[in-house]
Design a protein around this nucleic acid. Structure first.
Lengths: 203, 203, 203, 203
DNA sequence: CATGAATGAGTGTTCATTCAT
DNA sequence: CATGAATGAACACTCATTCAT
């Protein structure tokens, strides 16, 4: 009566899994739009065509639901980032940084709402999510730091300043608030030219 | 018994005005620390040595109180910005932009809590405050736009991109979240060098 | 495919009956441990290796399930009581009362969880259970009353007081709360000596 | 503007104090009738002619409100007990125990609802109330233990059994459930005669 | 003017109950 | 038969808001 694989290769997903995903999607959407403390479970449930109490069949608490959204978001962002950077593995550090900028901005603007929640929440609420998320978030920012340091070493970025500060400035610029006002390509190429990373620094 | 002047020319400030100011100061402090939706009226009242109900003698609602804080904040930021820019009126557009960056970052970090509330709120909550605030906020961003356009014209900033987008990117970078992590001078000089505005581009 | 006998004479018990019994056992255990209003249907279902919804195939409501548990409990207690008392049918009324005390305490402490639920619930929630239970519970207390009256007549208990009050006092003492703190033999023999029933009152 | 003493000798009680007391009285009444986990804040508030949220102006949580009720109850019970026992200071240990029984039963039946809550809760929920209550409750039971041991030493109670068990049995008997069924004098004198404490056991 | 005291709408959460599968 | 999945009413609790004093 019950299909053998619940999540196996064949692509079979139980109804519970699908509803769970629907809730997560709804949560990501609402959280991205209203912000973490402004979004109520009633909002999220309504966006998933449910009543608030029903969420507890799938998640133990608002906190856990949020953590799950953040985990999906950071995983997506990480995958997007590493894919883009590895795609230009042999290139200059400037080119890699360009790729990273494109990936980050794209994650926020066009990927899913999950990444948007991460970015909207990360800097404002430092102690958010569960341990797994914290680890993954640190990994993400650490990777960025490496890229920045490499760019500084190569002279693509000014070397006189703390790379962590540079990273924070970049994040600030990339996370510029109203999604939808600027497209991701507009945003990232503008930032690239603003930082004078636009192309190979000719001799 | 002598409530004659409420705000008269001579500099006389009634007791009511003084309390009003005390509340505004307290509100700015609390709002800057806790964020707009996290700060409760009880918090604000306590910081002003009052009880929550008393606030309603001076302000019609939390929203109005917030609007007033924002108005003070944007006025301060505006004054700070124009003063700094006018101080180097004859200089290059790059120098003026440097001054603007310094002023904005300083306003957020060291000026008062009012400016911090504006900056913390402005980009995240677009439709905040009353009409007056909205007008003043637009004036502030419009002034920034002029500075950016001038810098583009002079070649201090890349001219291929929408100046409003450049402005938003700058705002994002300058408003990078945790106050106190980086000093205002660290932040502004790092941004200046990141944008290659550091000094007059000698011929 | 063979649902023939539901409760037939031959001792055949259908699967439904067996599951029903399993639920009742689980309910008795959980109710005895957590108390009536603290125990949730999810708790009970889990103890019966079921999900909460499944209980409704066997019982119309939590109330009905509770009533059934109480009915089993009072039946057991009654059987235990009458058996013990009849075992010393010819003896003195004091000896019979001693037997009753032993039976009651033993029912609560060592018999099954059903009796424990009855005793834990009976005095605190007077209007519990269905009519059948109420009738059986009254029969149980009525039997106790007879034993007390007999003991009063024989001088084994003080005769100046309302026997129903004496019965309630005995119940209170026997149902002294934390199961497990005192063993049933400790409890009953202590009560017996406290009431000066310890042995045959010599001439 | 504000009277010097808030609770001092003069008998001045602020309105807040009076409402607080009204809530405590209502809570005691409702808790005594419905039991601790069955009584809702809405019930209690309604009994005090308030809405549930208003209780939080006077008490930080349901737990704190309950703790306060318990503290009043145990204080009353203690005062009642010591007063009664000291009134027959020179008498026999049996007489003192009789006084204690009378006081305890009276506290539950006729004093206030506070004592009833304590008694209804104490044995069923061991870890209730705050630290102060726990201390006072232990003092109460310890005093009872002394009385029992003294009675055992004097031969007024059987000496072969653990005095703590005897105390628990006495408590169980005295706390016999439905308040109002028996008067306090009926109850205590019945228990006294049941334990053969009725008068001085003449030689 | 300010407070004390109260309210009501809304929050996250629990749980008995229902019903299609 | 049993479960999966959902619901709605209730819970303790918070907070902006009101108003008599």
């Amino acid at each position: 009566m019950k299909p053998a694989a619940t999540e196996a290769a064949g692509g079979t997903t139980s109804k519970k899994d699908r509803t769970r995903r629907r809730i997560l999607d709804a949560a990501a959407k609402v959280l991205a739009r209203l912000g973490i403390e402004q979004a109520t479970l009633t909002d999220i449930a309504a966006a998933a065509d449910l009543k608030a109490g029903s969420l507890y069949f799938h998640f133990a608490s608002k906190e856990e639901l949020l953590a799950e959204v953040l985990n999906v978001g950071i995983a997506e962002s990480w995958a997007h980032l590493t894919r883009a950077v590895e795609a230009c593995a042999g290139s200059s550090s400037g080119a890699q940084l360009r790729a990273a900028i494109g990936a980050h901005v794209e994650a926020r603007h066009e990927l899913t709402d999950y990444a948007a929640v991460v970015i909207g929440a990360a800097h404002t609420h430092p102690r958010l999510g569960d341990d797994l998320y914290q680890r993954h978030y640190r990994r993400y920012t650490a990777r960025w730091l490496e890229l920045i340091v490499a760019a500084q070493t190569d002279g693509a970025l000014p070397s006189g300043t703390d790379p962590r500060l540079l990273r924070d400035l970049c994040f600030g610029a990339m996370n510029v608030a109203p999604r939808g006002r600027w497209s991701s390509t507009q945003t990232s190429s503008a930032l690239v030219s603003l930082l004078h990373l636009s192309s190979e620094e000719s001799s």
